[in-house]
């Protein structure tokens, strides 16, 4: 099997289309640094076999990633994570935004207002020494 053993974790009970779930997983792996610029992604068939999805679904995901400039395909060699420093930064920012929004939404639902949330965050950050234990 080629690639780097990257296997997306897919949730078939989710209503999110499988091909987008694959894109999400790659994006997450890039943002976390598990996949670096220039890294080769598994071949479409290998990924399909590993994730037990239809090769066409993987093809669609790879095309989507290409369109989003996340990856580059070199004919005959495979698909690689794009050599694009802006990409990682923007992906990280994007995912940070997503995490933040989710957090805020949750906190507001619990009835906390802006200043309370800020205070709690400050407290938490100083509490664990600013280690930045980010939840995935």
């Amino acid at each position: 099997m080629g690639g780097r053993g990257f296997t997306p974790r897919l949730d078939f009970t989710s209503t999110r289309p499988i091909y987008l779930q694959i894109v999400d997983e790659v994006r997450r792996a890039i943002a976390r640094g598990e996949l670096r610029p220039g890294d080769r992604l598994p071949s479409q068939r290998d990924l399909a076999v590993q994730a037990r999805v239809n090769p066409n679904t993987v093809q669609r995901a790879y095309r989507e990633m290409e369109l989003l400039n996340m990856t580059e395909t070199v004919r005959g060699e495979g698909t690689f994570v794009a050599q694009n420093p802006v990409l990682i930064r923007s992906l990280r920012a994007e995912m940070a935004q997503e995490a933040l929004q989710q957090f805020l939404q949750e906190m507001r639902a619990l009835g906390f207002d802006g200043s309370e949330i800020r205070a709690l965050v400050d407290q938490a950050l100083t509490g664990d020494g600013g280690g930045g234990a980010s939840r995935g």
Partner: peptide, 30 residues
């Protein structure tokens, strides 16, 4: 689940439901 592109649900010799797997999944979950 992940391998199918289209599905046909058969019941008592009739097609009960049919469609693209992804579209059905988006609508109904798995």
């Amino acid at each position: 689940e992940g391998f199918l592109e289209r599905v046909v649900f058969l019941e008592r010799g009739r097609i009960r439901l049919e469609g693209e797997a992804e579209a059905l999944r988006v609508k109904h979950g798995s």
